[in-house]
Amino acid sequence: MSTVGIVVISHSRALAAGVAEVARAMGVGKAVVEPAGGGPDGGLGTSIDLVEQAIDAADGGAGVLLLADLGGSVLTARLAIEDRADAVFADAPLVEGAVAAASMAATGAGLATVKAAAEAAASHRKT
């Protein structure tokens, strides 16, 4: 059974990789989490080519959820899925959202449920 794929987009290659690492651990070996971090030249920034490659890598047939840190990452994420019906963007905090999405994806839940889990993470308080 394929699970919803998750793409973590950040201006920083290290940040995207780190968030993906944490989210994968929460996905208990079942969630597919692909990082797309850094700009076209590998420095800080966002690359639509990297985002599109990550979407393809995360796509196992059950749809793909995108999470982004801020600014240009968000715009690039939304632009990358403009013409795709099987990929959606989650308006969620990057770390909490990715962890929530990976946890839910690992249960085999559908794209809408995984998106809702990621977005609900915005209201998880730490105090």
Binding site: G39, P40, D41, G43, G45, T46, S47, I48, D49, G71, G72, L75, T76, R78, L79
Partner: peptide
């Protein structure tokens, strides 16, 4: 421009 800019201006000017 979308491909090579890298910042928020890439998606915006590209669009």
């Amino acid at each position: 421009i979308v491909s090579r800019t890298g910042g928020a201006s890439g998606p915006l000017y590209g669009t």
